[in-house]
């Protein structure tokens, strides 16, 4: 490109390939470098954070008591007790939440894909699901507080927490289920209709089973997400240092709540508990994520 007609030193023959100008090449490399750097920049905090949590917290976890005892009667400065009570709370609250949110979420997704026909109500629902997925957890918690505690007069409890978590879980379940149902080939629905199977049975016996693994994956991811939520437990249930099996009454610990409360404990033992609980929470969430990945890997929808 640089050789012009008037250039006395131009080669007798034009080069086989036109060269890219240095400026363009430089820009190209610069862009690539910046993008790679952006990725690295994002990895740094992740590694740093995980390293901090693991190095500060792992020594708490290796003690057998950590998994089997609560903090009942343990003094702030005492290296003793465990998070059994908080683990129970975290899992229980998430399970109760899933029990309510999963059926509603799946049925809503079925409505959107199989019945809604992109009509006005279906579009409204999709819009509301989007909005719901953007509702901050603290607002969901306040709403349940205003409804469950102030209006209905119930006491704060683990169940109230689960109700708030339902609002946070629903949009995730609806979205992922919807996506999976849309992947089910129409040919299967037609094959079923052609056998004289009514529509609802086609959905229940053919469409949902075909999409099942994807739906389960979505549910696991959603469950993992709500387990890490802190705002609802701060507002809707008191902290307890001992185990409480009753989800409808009394204080109940959960891992985020335990972390938040032990943060106020300046003793070394308290700090260890904080990091230990943080690590436990991450492991719990990772576990659910991992199960989700395994399930989705196992059986993606086969269209053939």
């Amino acid at each position: 490109m640089t050789a012009t007609l008037t250039d006395p030193n131009r080669p007798a023959q034009a080069p086989a390939f036109q060269k890219i100008s240095p400026a363009r090449q430089f820009k190209n490399y610069l862009a690539m470098t910046l993008m790679g750097l952006a990725f690295l920049v994002a990895v740094v905090p992740l590694v740093w954070l995980l390293f901090t949590v693991v190095s500060n917290g792992y020594s708490a976890l290796v003690n057998g008591d950590w998994w089997s005892k609560s903090l009942k009667g343990v003094l702030p400065e005492q290296f003793a007790g465990g998070v059994y009570h908080a683990l129970y709370g975290s899992i229980m609250q998430a399970l109760v939440c899933a029990l309510i949110a999963v059926p509603i979420g799946i049925l809503t997704a079925v409505y959107l894909v199989e019945y809604g026909n992109n009509g006005r109500f279906a579009r409204l629902t999709t819009f509301m699901v989007d909005i719901l997925s953007g509702v901050p957890s603290i607002v969901a918690a306040l709403f349940v507080f205003a409804l469950w505690v102030t209006t209905f007069g119930f006491e704060t409890s683990a169940f109230a927490v689960s109700l708030a978590l339902v609002l946070l879980m629903l949009p995730v379940v609806v979205r992922s289920t919807e996506e999976m149902l849309r992947l089910v080939p129409d040919e299967l629905r037609e094959a079923s209709y052609a056998l004289g199977v009514p529509k609802w049975k086609t959905i229940v016996k053919i469409v949902l089973p075909t999409a099942l693994s994807g739906i389960v994956t979505g549910v696991m991811l959603a469950t993992a997400r709500v387990m890490g939520e802190t705002a609802p437990v701060l507002v809707l249930v008191g902290y307890s240092r001992s185990i409480n099996f009753d989800i409808f009454g009394g204080n109940m610990a959960s891992l985020p709540l335990l972390i938040y409360n032990e943060l106020l404990n300046p003793e070394e033992a308290g700090q260890l508990r904080v990091w230990g609980a943080a690590l436990t929470l991450i492991l719990l969430i990772m576990f659910f994520n991992l199960v989700a990945t395994v399930i989705s890997r196992f059986s993606a929808i086969k269209t053939k």
Partner: peptide, 16 residues
């Protein structure tokens, strides 16, 4: 790896 960041609960981010 990036998605892993989303799996870290907010209280742990706060702690860190």
């Amino acid at each position: 790896v990036i998605d892993l960041l989303a799996a870290v609960p907010s209280i742990v981010f706060g702690l860190w």
